[in-house]
């Protein structure tokens, strides 16, 4: 592992409805470390617990066992210190607030003074290339634009980590590829550590510096694959043989685990 780990997960297990006949083990004994500045994708079929793992890191769900440390703190403390920002599958903007006031919400919660908030918001809207939409309301924006506002909102408090839970899942293919490019640009501008949940192999390969492949029932880490394609990645990257080789490698890792599971 290069550099120092900013996220450390030790033996995390998650059971839903423990002790009943409907008990489900979503995650079993997960160990994972993520270094500062990495772009890590959690990839796997639905039901492999990738979202649950992300939600445990973000202190939205408590683990049944094990420990997580973010930036050397517990997830709860990290959440209160606003060490991470979060983007969900739906933009979830507040429809009664303008774009600008949506983006500044995390700062407002933190009690930042208005002038500073406005300056920061303007910078964030520049970052996601929506400065002229500051006074628009969410319903006037397309789905892709709403998601960009959500990214600006997540980044407005300068978090060290960005958690993204299938953020592009609700968009069409064209929008998706465009936003993937934007996301990489934003990542290289901010040098934030990103943990990205997806079930799309191409998306994971295009974006990530490392892919954590997960297997279902119970959720485990099946493989950790470094993606050594050079940044900045562009539309051209998608046409490289190395890109397709990586996709094949990841697909085999996903496939292999289903075969292994069938054999077991």
């Amino acid at each position: 592992m290069p550099e120092s780990p900013i996220i450390r997960i030790d033996g995390v297990t998650k059971q839903f409805n423990p002790g009943t006949d409907r008990s489900v083990t979503a995650l079993a004994d997960i160990d994972l470390t993520i270094a500062e500045g990495e772009f890590v994708s959690l990839l796997g079929p639905s039901g492999c617990g990738k979202s649950t793992l992300l939600r445990i890191m973000a202190d939205l769900t408590p683990p049944t066992a094990g420990s997580v440390s973010l930036n050397g703190k517990s997830p709860a403390t990290a959440r209160r210190d606003r060490d991470y920002g979060m983007v969900f599958q739906q933009a979830g903007l507040f429809e009664w607030r303008s774009v600008q006031r949506n983006v500044e919400l995390p700062l407002q919660v933190a009690g930042v003074a208005k002038q500073e908030r406005r300056a920061k918001t303007a910078a964030m809207l520049d970052l996601v290339r929506l400065p002229e939409f500051a006074r628009h309301f969410p319903w006037q924006l397309s789905g892709g634009m709403q998601q960009r506002v959500a990214i600006a909102r997540a980044l407005s408090a300068d978090p060290k980590i960005l958690f993204m839970d299938e953020p592009l899942g609700a968009l069409d293919e064209m929008n998706r590829e465009h936003l993937q490019g934007e996301l990489l640009r934003i990542w290289s501008d901010t040098r934030t550590t990103v943990v990205f949940v997806t079930h799309s192999i191409t998306e994971a390969v295009f974006l990530s510096s490392r892919i954590v492949v997960m297997s279902p029932r119970p959720g485990r880490i099946a493989a950790s694959i470094d993606v050594d394609l050079p940044y900045p990645r562009t539309a051209e990257t998608r046409t490289l043989p190395a890109f397709f080789d990586k996709i094949t490698e990841v697909r085999e890792a996903l496939h292999g685990m289903t075969v292994a599971e069938d054999a077991a």
Binding site: D59, L60, Y84, F88, Q90, G92, V109
Partner: peptide, 17 residues
């Protein structure tokens, strides 16, 4: 919706907020 309540939690908003 859940996205909005969870977002508020992710930014550590208090009960009042």
């Amino acid at each position: 919706p859940k996205v909005q309540t969870e977002f508020m939690r992710s930014v550590a908003a208090g009960r009042r907020q």
